[in-house]
Write a protein that binds this DNA or RNA. Structure first.
Lengths: 235, 235
DNA sequence: TGAATAGTGTCTTTCAGACAATATGCC
DNA sequence: GGCATATTGTCTGAAAGACACTATTCA
């Protein structure tokens, strides 16, 4: 049992439960959807897991998430939102821990994967090649995958997964990687233009063949879009 | 600081944080969307709040939510889902408490509002007449309102807010109460039929005028619907 | 000029949104 | 028959979904 320290008629008594924040960090590498996994140093040792740690005194949940994210990837100011809270009594065999899961979207432009004190190793793993993870982390990952699909359907967060300048084909590859399905190029572009999500620049991507026009997002703030992809991304 | 009780190389150290579950309980009364509020007996005293309590040893978050719901309303087997977790360090001035908010949908058919030991008083309050609540409960309520709208757009959970048999006008009133806007009767029914959400029965509702055909839901399991209201319920 | 990728338009069907008259039961 | 509520259909514009050819650059 825990108690707070204030005067007696304000006394609060409650069971002692650890509160942790775990983060699913998504990235697109080589047109594939990847997740950052770490190999745990603490128990359970040498098992893959998603990054996370306990909430510290005075930290909000979001602050904890940002700190963990910075420790693992060295990035700040990325897309980050709360996902779900997992609290089954047996989810951590060591002691009672409630995990508030967050999910983050980063792009490869200026990533810097560190190996923090908590982790022996870190690696980007393809979403379709996830090993058995510690605790209930596979469940958390399933959940975050669904959320990501939904986010691409109804918001503009795709900007978080790409560098500032990109081609329309690259953007389509992001959507295809997330929904795990080929999309029709003409319909995708028609739909995309209606959303007002992106605009052309005057630059092109030099390549082996016809150069593609580079685009940028009209907004780098997370928001709902006016003509969401909704049904378009569904089967 | 808290520690678990196992052997030393499994030792886990973490700050002591209370984990509570608070529940937003929605109901439709007289065609208006209502929320169950309680008047607190513990500090802060005599302030309205949404029902809730600490997670007990061995309880999952969902179990806690079900227990609280039963204590407050006497109902079981209602629609209940996790909403969001609120964890700002200052949200409870007594001590550090993280609140996992749930939201529940009940119907008036067999409600039994109790006054539990924690609450001096309980009342259904109109969603548009919510007083200043304890802690950050007003924020929780705002959040749950948004979630409810979304749920009606994309899932069949409306069945939770109505008795087994209902008229189409009554169902429309539920949607109107939630989105807080009048809907076109013909378009609503056309859209509704496409969803496959409801089916006719052979019974009618006796009344002062032309009787309406009673309908029932085709499914009483929460699920996404195939032709969601989506855009229809938006402005 | 051939290879590879970028970019573009039409047709059909379905859905959203606006709109008003008829049907039925009760008194 | 009058009243109150229940029930039903059409038209128009927008979006979804299927589908194939032309344009440009480089080697």
């Amino acid at each position: 049992m825990c108690y707070n320290n204030t005067m007696s008629d304000d006394k609060v008594k409650f069971d002692c439960i650890g509160v942790a924040v775990d983060i699913v960090i998504f990235n697109i590498i080589d047109n594939r959807l990847k997740v950052l996994l770490i190999k745990r140093a603490p128990k359970p040792e040498n098992v893959w897991a998603i990054p996370g740690g306990f909430v510290r005194r005075g930290e909000s949940l979001l602050t904890t998430a940002k700190r963990e994210l910075d420790e693992e990837t060295g990035v700040k100011d990325v897309y980050l939102e709360q996902l779900y809270t997992f609290g089954n009594p047996e989810r951590d065999p060591r002691t009672r821990v409630v995990s508030v899961a967050y999910f983050a979207l980063v792009n490869s432009e200026k990533l810097d994967i560190k190996t923090g004190s908590d982790a022996k190793d870190a690696a980007w793993r393809d979403i379709d090649e996830i090993p058995k993870l510690a605790f209930d982390h596979n469940k958390i990952l399933d959940y975050s995958r669904q959320r990501l699909i939904w986010k691409l359907e109804y918001t503009n967060v795709a900007y978080s997964l790409l560098p500032r300048l990109f081609t329309l084909t690259e953007l389509q590859r992001v959507y295809e990687a997330v929904v795990d399905r080929k999309l029709d190029k003409r319909n995708f572009r028609r739909k995309l233009l209606k959303t007002g999500l992106v605009k052309e620049t005057t630059m092109t991507r030099p390549g082996a063949h016809r150069p593609a026009i580079l685009h940028e997002f009209t907004s780098n703030k997370a928001e709902y879009i006016s003509n969401p992809f909704g049904a378009f991304l569904k089967k």
